[in-house]
Design a protein around this nucleic acid. Structure first.
Length: 1089
RNA sequence: GCCGGGAUGGCGGAAUGGUAGACGCAAUAGACUCAAAAUCUAUCGGGCGCAAGCUCGUGAGAGUUCAAGUCUCUCUCCCGGCACCA
């Protein structure tokens, strides 16, 4: 009699597997017969809290899958590692006052121990840790390759800044408008950032999704995240200016409907257009208020639009040449498209809302089109256009509506008729009077624009194309005039309820449009497709067909825009991979000498601000084109110049520096300049090629003289010193993270590394001069973007991965990747991006990293909430394993429900799995050597069916039904004698689920000498799963009335029918003659009467 | 608003268009026990019925079909993602 002592069994076999290195993976050799199978888990972030019971769900699944694959003859790679750089580890370290390195070490050990007691089959000899310098050397290496290809660059655009974490963040790190880590509202902060140009890969990231065996939902999430949208870029010239406003639109077809143009408040154009703007004060005020609004406020009240007109500025419509006003409004985002839109209030909801608020005109250029289904146009007939009106007359007394019934066709309609110019309401009223005699109508309204309809007018033998307006009236009183005999002969009128007005009842092809307008009003934009009107030569054409043509006519071009933004890749934090670059001024100087020649063209009329360290910011603005030309020549803001300056006032030393022009400030007179003390203190003036002291000149020559000299005013340039980033030589990698005492973030936008002078000050690898290290670090997602490659060749010192090994293990990509959905738009996009880059530079041989992906559903707490310390609903796997055994935990987590669905933890339900294991173990006592005691057919049918079901279910990740089928097998066999070979088959199929118990039975009871986990997976015999008894459900008119049994595996229709119609319960229902019999072989006989 | 995914007993869930509720939990009754636990046996969607059996039932409503949890349309609610993306 076997008693299941899980504590003993678990421990015994875990140490056995370790000792025998059962799970160590050998690299495939050329000519090896075993097919490779690379099974991968999303590696964990080792937090201080350790694992809860939800974490291992995915690991158990891959464990089962890899054991199964190994037993079916595959060479399996199933590794595990740790992703330990990043904010959580650092925040944990700060909070607990330990060095993150030490904290990570401790947490990794804890995680490893916790994973070990679950009996997972990882090959720990291949483990990786992203914080290990030998690992991150290659993370840095990849970054350098990107840098060299120009994919990594410095950007000065405003980025998302988390004031609590004190670092910049990527778009992907946001939860709406909040920091995904700490929930703090993010700010937009302009600062220097390293950015990876992921948008260059956007199309490939999008299109290559199609071939991946991934859950459709994840692919869709990525598609949405990339947000590719095709449209046109059109140019609106600014009247009396060299400036142009470029807009991006997906609806160039609505171009004739443009009634104004909107630019984002942050758009540089607003500044550039300042000289023309006559209401600058108002604009400045608006810019201030929008800037003060948080991102949240801007999006929360998205119904209430706000904006301000740039008075004095008009743009020219690219086709019609009409002038159009320009607005700045924050419903236009600076960061998407061109930061400006053409507004078509008639056909865009947002423009509509804005136009209504500011009383701007609408211009309808697309109208709905309907083809009459009852009277479709007939091919080959003449087309005749016609303007129509249809009239809804309501009697306010009882709410009834006036209808017309055509005697000849039986059609129901509104009073209607053609109109030839003239006033619409008058024509409509006349039509009502002619057809019905009612002459006093009031409250006339035109309900929206026209609708185009096509139908065949049989009485005229032509195809009619009608443009119809709907008009509504109230009946003022019931006075009538006589109706002409002709009208009376053709039609009657009647009053009926509003609700009779259905598409079926009424003959109008436009009816669904009318109903929508009557029920939901006409105050909205029409955003659907239709037919062009008010658009010159495009009139009458379908809007969907003219996109290219109209773009061309407007002189625009087709363009693709993405929602995806480039990846902000630097963090102002300590605990990350140092970016392996140094900043060198001398190299910059060498690089930019050419442009330096430009500087000598500026005489004493120009005043320069030399901001020694680039730390001083003065208020600046962009220059208009005229000023630009006058003061800068061909130098633009953002240009880099070699600049000469004097170190100390009056001194002789002249140094050169590379500077970037950040902006400029204009003073009308020297007096103005001298009033600006801040700027003045930094000023030097350059006369011809010598430096003079400005203040001295001023006092010598006097105000008038100086002002005469400058005439056009003074320009103070704001500049900052420029360095160029120089890569750390590959041989010097890894660039190790220095050990520090204080790694708390500074909050100034500088990484804590910046404070370590010893580390920061270094030599330039190129010119050997003094240089400073880049002090930003990489984001958490860097290390995880390629870790799956390193498992293949974890100890390689010469390369990221050996090419032969890569080709073997990555052939076709990772075969099975399992993890949570939460990584859909970050890790899984980043890793695909890096992989494609590595493919481009020849490091990997596949264009996609992960061929097949499965998501695990979360395990919730017993209270149906996310497991969290906050709710006190966390279940620790260690406790479960101690109380019920590792195998019970494993079986239960797989049995809870479909793998991909979330499910609430229930220790009650877990007991069922434990009982199953105990009952399974009892089968050992049923083993006999005497074949005569064994009901061979029944036993083998059960076992072979189970083998089949489990085999198929594991392959499909249907673990819950696999477990259930094994439960059924045990229930069926518990009271039967079986042979040892039968038990062997069952133990093998249970082995991946319950590795400890099955090993115990295998080696102890069945006396096998080698581990079960490298055994050959059993096969089922299709002949043995066929029963020699068949049950057929007999239905009468689809309802089951009787079940009949046959003692054979196959039943013919004739046999089934014969037996069925004799059964009492069937006979009773056969009250009328049999019409038809449907027989589904061996399953159902349906008698239709 | 848009894009995904759901909704089946008291609960977790199962069902290539073919006997809805497999399997598990909980519950009830019984056996064993001085007793309890454990284990074993039986019952276990609602209504009617002594029973055979009938009838209603897969979020709501329509439809296709000999047959619908499953397919089609409309709607409600829940979960996830995106969201003033032009």
């Amino acid at each position: 009699m076997f008693t299941y002592n899980h504590k003993k069994v678990d421990k015994k076999w875990q140490s056995y597997w370790n000792k025998k290195k059962v799970y160590e993976t050998k690299d495939g050799k050329a000519g090896a017969t075993a097919k490779k199978c690379y099974i991968l888990d999303m590696f964990p972030y080792p937090s201080g809290d350790g694992l809860h019971v939800g974490h291992p769900k995915g690991y158990i699944a891959t464990d089962i899958f890899s054991r199964f694959k190994r037993m079916t003859g595959h060479n399996v790679l199933h590794p595990m590692g740790f992703d330990a750089f990043g904010l959580p580890a650092e925040n944990y370290a700060i909070k607990n006052k330990v060095n993150p390195e030490i904290a990570v070490k401790k947490n990794v050990k804890k995680f490893k121990d916790q994973l070990a007691i679950i009996g997972l089959d990882y090959d720990w000899s291949r483990t990786v840790n992203t914080t290990d310098p030998e690992y991150y050397r290659w993370t840095q290496w990849i970054f350098l390759q990107m840098f060299k290809k120009g994919l990594a660059f410095e950007s000065f655009e405003p980025i998302n800044w988390c004031p609590s974490c004190k670092t910049g963040l990527a778009n992907e790190d946001l939860d709406g408008t909040k920091c995904e880590r700490c929930g703090t509202e993010i700010e937009h902060k302009p600062m220097r950032q390293w950015v990876l140009e992921i948008t260059k890969y956007a199309d490939r990231l999008l299109y290559d999704l199609d071939d991946l065996n991934w859950p459709e939902s994840i692919k869709e999430l990525q598609r949405n995240w990339i947000g590719r949208s095709e449209g046109s870029e059109l140019t609106f010239k600014v009247q009396n200016s060299n400036e142009v406003i470029k807009v991006f639109t997906t609806r160039p077809d609505t171009l004739y409907g443009v009634t104004y143009v909107v630019v984002a408040p942050e758009n540089k154009l607003v500044q550039a257009l300042k000289p023309q703007i006559t209401n600058w004060k108002e604009i400045e005020k608006y810019l201030k208020t929008t800037k003060a609004k948080t991102e949240l406020e801007r999006t929360a009240d998205n119904k209430e639009k706000s904006g301000v007109e740039l008075k004095g500025v008009k743009v020219i419509h690219p086709i019609t040449g009409e002038t159009v006003p320009v607005f700045a409004a924050d419903y236009v985002l600076a960061g998407y498209g061109t930061g400006a839109v053409m507004a078509v209030p008639a056909h865009d909801d947002r423009d509509y809302a804005f136009a209504v608020k500011y009383n701007l005109p609408l211009k309808e250029v697309i109208i709905p089109e309907r083809i009459d289904k009852r009277n479709p146009p007939v091919a080959g007939k003449e087309k005749v256009e016609r303007q129509n009106v249809q009239v809804v007359v309501r009697n306010p007394k009882d709410g009834k509506i006036l209808y017309i019934k055509y005697k000849k066709f039986g059609w129901h309609s509104f009073p209607m008729g053609g109109i030839d110019g003239g006033e619409l309401l008058a024509a409509a009223a006349r039509e009502v009077m002619e057809e019905t005699g009612y002459k006093n109508l009031t409250n006339g309204k035109v309900l929206g624009g026209q609708v185009r309809a096509e139908y065949f007018a049989a009485h005229k033998d032509v195809n009619r194309v009608s443009y119809t307006n709907l008009v509504s009236f109230d009946l003022e009183n019931e006075e009538r005039v006589p109706v002409s005999e002709k009208e009376a002969a053709e039609a009657d009128y009647f009053w009926a309820d509003m609700k009779d007005m259905t598409c079926d009842f009424m003959c109008h092809a436009e009816m669904d449009v009318w109903l929508d307008r009557l029920n939901n009003g006409t105050e909205k934009a029409y955003c659907e497709d239709g037919v062009m009107v008010n658009s010159d030569k495009f009139n009458g054409r379908k809007n969907t067909e003219i996109m290219e043509e109209i773009t061309k006519l407007a002189g625009g071009k087709r363009k693709v825009t993405y929602r995806l933004k480039d990846w902000v890749f630097s963090r102002q934090r300590y605990w990350g991979e140092p970016i392996p670059l140094v900043h060198c001024e001398h190299c910059a100087q060498a690089k930019f000498t050419k442009e330096a020649k430009l500087t000598v063209n500026f005489y004493y009329k120009d005043v320069w601000t030399a901001l020694n360290n680039g730390t001083k910011t003065v208020e600046t603005r962009a220059l208009n084109p005229e000023e630009q030309n006058r003061y800068f020549g061909n130098v633009k803001v953002g240009d880099i110049l070699n600049f000469e300056y004097k170190k100390e006032k009056g001194g002789k030393t002249i140094e050169q520096k590379c500077v970037r022009v950040k902006g400029a400030k204009i003073y009308k007179t020297f007096a103005d300049l001298f009033a600006d003390k801040d700027t003045l203190s930094k000023l030097h003036i350059k006369k011809y090629s010598s430096v003079i002291d400005l203040e001295k000149s001023y006092s010598t020559f006097g105000d008038d003289y100086m002002n005469k000299i400058i005439k056009n005013g003074l320009v103070a340039w704001e500049i900052e010193p420029v360095t160029i980033p120089v890569p750390v030589p590959e041989k010097d990698l890894p660039l190790k993270l220095p050990k520090v005492k204080s790694y708390e973030p500074s909050g100034t936008g500088e990484s804590p590394l910046a404070k370590i002078d010893k580390w920061v000050n270094t030599k330039c690898p190129v010119c050997k001069g003094k240089a400073k290290r880049e002090t930003n670090t990489m984001p958490q997602w860097a290390g995880s973007s390629w870790y799956y490659l390193r498992y293949i060749d974890p100890k390689n010192k010469k390369a990221l991965i050996d090419s032969k090994k890569e080709k073997f293990w990555m052939k076709g990509g990772v075969d099975m990747y399992v993890g949570g959905t939460e990584h859909a738009t970050r890790h899984l996009i980043y890793a695909r991006f890096w992989h494609k880059f590595l493919f481009d530079i020849g490091v990997v041989s596949t264009k996609e990293p992960f061929a097949q992906l499965r998501n695990q559903g979360m395990i919730l707490g017993a209270d149906n909430r996310k497991m969290s310390k906050r709710w006190g609903n966390v279940v620790n796997p260690d406790d479960v394993v101690a109380n019920f055994g590792a195998d019970a935990l494993r079986v239960y987590e797989m049995f809870m429900g479909p793998f991909a669905m979330e499910a609430a933890w229930s220790t009650d339900n877990l007991i069922g799995s434990r009982r199953f294991l105990e009952r399974f173990a009892k089968l050992q006592d049923n083993v006999t050597k005497n074949k005569k005691e064994v009901k061979m057919d029944e036993v083998e049918m059960t076992i072979h069916r189970t083998v089949k079901k489990v085999t198929e279910d594991i392959a499909e990740f249907n673990f819950n039904t696999a477990v259930s089928s094994m439960m059924i097998a045990v229930n069926e066999l518990l009271d039967k004698k079986i042979l040892a070979e039968h038990l062997e088959m069952l133990v093998k199929v249970l082995a991946p689920f319950a590795p400890h118990l099955t090993e115990e039975i295998w080696q102890t009871t069945l006396k096998k000498k080698k581990t079960i986990h490298l055994e050959k997976w059993p096969t089922w015999d299709p002949k043995k799963i066929i029963s020699n008894k068949t049950k057929i459900a007999v239905q009468v008119n689809g309802k089951v009335r009787e079940t009949i049994e046959f003692n054979s595996a196959d039943v013919s229709e004739a046999d089934a029918k014969e037996k069925a119609i004799q059964a009492e319960n069937v006979k009773r229902w056969l009250v009328s003659p049999i019409k038809k019999i449907i027989y589904i072989k061996n399953k159902i006989l349906n008698i239709v009467i």
